[in-house]
Design a binder for these strands. Structure first.
Length: 956
RNA sequence: GCCCAUGUGGCGGAAUUGGUAGACGCAGCAGACUCAAAAUCUGCCGUUCGCAAGGGCGUGAAGGUUCGAUUCCUUUCGUGGGCACCA
């Protein structure tokens, strides 16, 4: 009986589905375990082999945990709102709801082929009104809450209103509050709401009349059409995530994320301690407020840099600098934030003509504007200390601003020295102090003089929460007289209305603004027409899986108390800051409001690496002049070797090509001058579909069929084969380097595919995809099959008693598989299975006693074959309901070890020794050894290092 | 530019806590079986010197710590990811 994986996999997938073996209950006596994959966006391109990497890992772990006796929640759903569907709608006129639905069906069918153990009854989709009803509901909770600075937590805004009504705050009394107009009161409250509306900058493209996403802007112009893009202030919604900065930092101590992931989040939050201080501006009333983390360098300030957008710029600019400043401002508006910060090579800036006064020594400090200072960070102004900061140094050098040295010989005039560990000079009252000690002293002095104060600053900004787009959750908000009024919870969901056109509304508003009937609820009452961003739904979806059909609440408290945190969250590092910080914040808010019982969503995070594409190239001969190719009436491709030769020489003559076409490769490289009448040829590399290349060898017939224009192609081969070029790039359809998991499942089976994805390397590592090695894994499964069945003889497994050697193989495997699975080292687990099967085959072990246990170990990795063989062994139930084997260490106990013996750290020989020997006995035996004596050559040894059960090193 | 990750045979990778570098697999080479092919099985397989025994070199590069470094430290180069409206 052969291993007919197609039949086996289809049959079991159907049976699992019919029997609902993956159905998960919220009511179980077993301990719970929650495994979650990062929410996929169902793109039109479908799955490629990169997507399932994390899904396979989580599926293996889920099945493993189930075998270990846990009630495992392992759901899947779709983050189905998003820009690509809308872009597609703009291009094709198809409604995003329709294309999204179609894409999801494709995704699901692809996922099912791989044999994942999802409970599809719990599937969620963010674009489903039954789901986004609760996204809107949570938005209302955010809107109706504020961050209480005393308690450091979210509280209902009603509490704040009550406080204002009874006690007022530091800016107004209770009486004044009551006297405020409704609008005035709402404006005050808006300053505290966790979801709030304010003006924010967007990428505005006048020509398209729309707001663009960052990746729709390339080099300062729109990706579509290449129109200019500039910054524009528009009313936007934001989430006050900055209030949670400290708790987001503290929470990192309680979760099991990689250090690098935590580091990225810390950097994003960017907490810094320093001082905010005011500098008087010369001959003016106004003061310039700067933020600095290094107040100790106050005597080294040689100039000020203010963000070009800073409010003061207009008023302080001197008359003769006005024109220059305006010109510079226009330039800055066209630059993206990234460009402004990134380009350290080209230094730009402009002098305002104004001076600030150093409060300590009265020096006049010129005030500049420059793009590298952003309005949104700190106070939008910095004091520049060129001897201590490299960017300031470069700026000073570029504009010939004299540099003051406050660190003596530690500054060499060639580059800045950002040290905190040296003694200050030239620094007034700070002279002679260690810089890091001077920081506190300077702050104290600043506070004493009343010109500034200690200040904690965050790099993180409040999160922009609105998009001028159609395909997202509508805001449950109606505007009237400039006041945002929330809908009642009973009015939810506010369904996304159907539109026929996906173009922008007037004034860059979202497409919803075009729907007058929908937007204008009543005279003077207009709905919010922007929609929520992609991360809205994904910030809380993990809760919905716990209770996906609840019509009364986003998630029943009993369900969230049972499932609690996600125990294992698997996804890519590209979500390191965005999604993870947002969902951590939402969780904290829901916790503060008493809606859930935990304030960190993900207990452990595992980052999966990216699978890159491995592109293949063919080399086509083209002409650089008109006559060159005219004599060849067909496309010509040359193999890799000839292309490299061409690259080396830099040209190709028609004569050489003719030689090759006639099969004469030994005639050398004909130079152009030998035949001046004919054109010069050049060769271009073209992406070829990786699926018609075997390793690097091109399937010529398939290539001829691939594109009609290649049908009559000539191929110049090396050693009878066409060898392609190779390059690692991002996997994408346009590079023809995507590999579809469906085809691999069809050709080798889902079990082979799953194990091969794991076998490629550590889940965390990024690596290029290469289908080449999949045969090896497939061979392994067939070899496993042959331990049970012979192709000719049929059943070969038996019920004989296992020998010690066989038990040893099994238990070594149990130990290693358990360890490797626990530490997510799935690639080495696959190797372990291979070693086990190789050894059992060598031992001719076909014994049920051994094989049955092996199948349980294998179930998480290759569920179909494990289930099939499990039932062949005569078991009634599902192998997934079996119990994970227990490792028996007694079976692996050894009494001797073959020790490696090194001389001065270099391995020279091996000696087998009893494990209970002590250092002294070992030394005696080792010194007797002839190889050791040969290296000693009669000289005495210095010492012998003996590490029990590890190694021996003789030092001479 | 800043932040994070990463670099080991022809290729993917292993070496879990500083202790035998290259497990396992792919590719390749040689052989067995076969009329033949496929499948399967056996052996070889970092590099270099050597008939062999055996030796030198070798984990991106350069230094350092150590009896011993792929592993720790310093410097440096290459590649990948993120940088706030892609998700």
């Amino acid at each position: 009986m052969e291993y007919d994986f197609r039949k086996i996999e289809q049959a079991w997938q159907k049976k699992w589905k019919d029997d609902k073996v993956y159905k998960v209950s919220n009511d179980s006596a077993k301990p719970k375990y929650y495994v979650l994959d990062m929410f996929p966006y169902p793109s039109g391109a479908g799955l490629h082999v990169g997507h399932p990497l994390g899904y396979i890992a989580s599926d293996i772990y889920s099945r493993y945990k189930r075998l270990k006796g846990f009630n495992v929640l392992h759901p899947m759903g779709f983050d189905s709102f998003g820009l690509p569907a809308e872009q597609y709608a703009l291009e094709t006129g198809q409604h995003p709801a329709a294309t999204t639905e179609k894409n999801i069906e494709t995704f699901k069918a692809q996922l099912d082929k791989i044999g994942f153990c999802y409970d599809w009854d719990r599937e969620v989709r963010t674009s489903d009104p039954k789901f986004y009803r609760w996204t809107q509901w949570i938005f209302l909770q955010l809107f109706n809450s504020y961050f209480c600075n005393t308690q450091q937590k979210a509280r209902p805004i009603a509490d704040l209103i009550e406080k204002y009504e009874t006690r007022g705050n530091k800016n107004f009394t209770a009486e004044q509050w009551k006297a405020f107009s409704k609008k005035e009161q709402e404006d005050v409250l808006m300053n505290r709401r966790l979801a709030f509306s304010a003006f924010g900058e967007v990428n505005w493209c006048e020509a398209l009349g729309t707001v663009l996403a960052n990746d729709e802007v390339v080099n300062g112009v729109s990706e579509r059409g290449g129109h200019p893009v500039e910054k524009k202030k528009m009313r936007q919604w934001f989430l006050r995530i900055t209030n949670y900065a400290d708790r987001l930092l503290e929470g990192l101590e309680t979760v099991d994320f990689s250090d690098s992931m935590k580091e990225m989040q810390r950097n994003w939050i960017g907490k810094s301690e320093g001082a905010e201080m005011d500098f008087q501006i010369k001959n003016q009333k106004s003061k310039l407020k700067v933020y600095t983390t290094r107040p100790d360098t106050i005597f080294g300030v040689d100039f000020m840099v203010v963000a070009p957008e800073h409010d003061l710029v207009a008023s302080i600019t001197s008359a003769d600098q006005k024109e220059e400043i305006e010109k510079y401002f226009a330039y800055v508006k066209s630059r993206s934030e990234r460009e402004r910060l990134a380009e350290a090579k080209t230094i730009t800036g402009c002098f305002t003509g104004a001076y600030a006064i150093n409060p300590f020594d009265g020096r006049e400090i010129p005030i500049w504007i420059a793009e590298y200072v952003l309005a949104g960070y700190g106070t939008g102004a910095i004091m520049a200390v060129p001897c201590g900061d490299q960017r300031d140094f470069a700026f000073a050098n570029h504009f010939n601003i004299p540099i003051t040295n406050i660190i003596g010989s530690h500054y060499n005039g060639e580059e800045a020295n950002p040290t905190k560990e040296t003694i200050l000079e030239n620094s007034g009252f700070l002279n002679g102090m260690l810089m890091k000690d001077a920081i506190g002293i300077a702050i104290n002095k600043i506070e004493e003089l009343g010109i500034g104060k200690k200040k904690v600053n965050y790099r993180m900004r409040d999160a922009g929460f609105s998009r001028q787009r159609y395909w997202g959750e509508p805001f449950p908000v109606v505007w009237t007289d400039g006041i945002a009024l929330p809908l009642d919870a009973e009015e939810l969901p506010l369904e996304l209305p159907h539109v026929d056109k996906y173009g922008p509304g007037p004034e860059g508003e979202g497409p919803l603004a075009n729907l007058k009937d929908w937007a204008e609820v009543a005279p003077n009452e207009k709905r919010e027409t922007s929609t929520m961003p992609g991360y809205a739904g994904s910030s809380w979806y993990f809760l919905r899986y716990m209770d996906p059909h609840n019509g009364e609440a986003f998630c029943d408290r009993k369900a969230s108390d049972y499932w609690n945190q996600v125990d294992l969250y698997i996804g890519g590092t590209e979500h390191a800051v965005g999604h993870l910080l947002y969902s951590r914040m939402w969780t904290k808010v829901l916790f503060d409001l008493g809606l859930i019982g935990f304030d960190e969503p993900y207990k452990k995070l595992l980052n999966q690496g990216m699978i890159q594409g491995s592109s293949r190239f063919v080399y086509r001969v083209v002409s650089t002049s008109k006559s060159g190719m005219s004599k060849y009436e067909y496309p010509i491709f040359i193999s890799s070797k000839f292309y490299n030769k061409y690259l080396e020489k830099g040209f190709l003559s028609t004569e050489t090509l003719d030689d090759w076409l006639n099969g004469r490769f030994d005639l050398g490289w004909k130079s152009l001058s030998e035949n001046p009448n004919e054109g010069i040829l050049s060769v271009i590399s073209i992406h070829v579909d990786v699926n018609i290349v075997d390793g690097v060898e091109l399937d010529i017939e398939a290539t001829k069929k691939w594109k009609p224009e290649f049908a009559d192609s000539q191929f110049i081969l090396e050693d009878g084969r066409y060898i392609c070029g190779v390059e690692t790039e991002k996997m994408s359809k346009s590079k023809f380097n995507t590999v579809n998991p469906d085809e691999l499942c069809e050709k080798y089976g889902a079990d082979t595919f799953r194990m091969y994805e794991m076998f490629l390397g550590p889940v965390e590592a990024s690596k290029p995809w290469d289908t080449k090695g999949i045969e090896g894994v497939h061979r392994f499964l067939r070899k496993l099959w042959r331990l049970f069945n012979d192709d000719l003889k049929g059943k070969v497994w038996n019920e004989d008693k296992a020998t010690d050697a066989e038990l040893k193989v099994l238990h070594r495997t149990i130990k290693k598989i358990e360890e490797d699975t626990e530490r997510f080292s799935f690639n080495t687990a696959v190797s372990t299975f291979m070693i086990c099967v190789n050894e059992l085959a060598d031992l001719k072990c076909y014994k049920k006693e051994i094989l049955e246990q092996l199948l349980i170990l294998l179930t998480p990795y290759a569920p179909h074959i494990a289930e099939e063989l499990w039932s062949q062994l005569g078991n009634a139930g599902n192998v997934l309901d079996a119990e994970f084997p227990t490792f028996n260490p007694a079976l692996l106990v050894e009494s001797t070890k073959d020790y490696p013996v090194s001389i001065n750290g270099k391995l020279r020989t091996n000696i087998e020794l009893a494990l209970d020997l002590e250092q002294k006995q070992v030394e005696e035996i080792v010194l007797q050894n002839e190889v050791v004596q040969k290296w000693l050559d009669g000289k005495p040894h210095k010492k012998i290092i003996f590490v029990k059960n590890k190694m021996i090193n003789v030092v001479i």
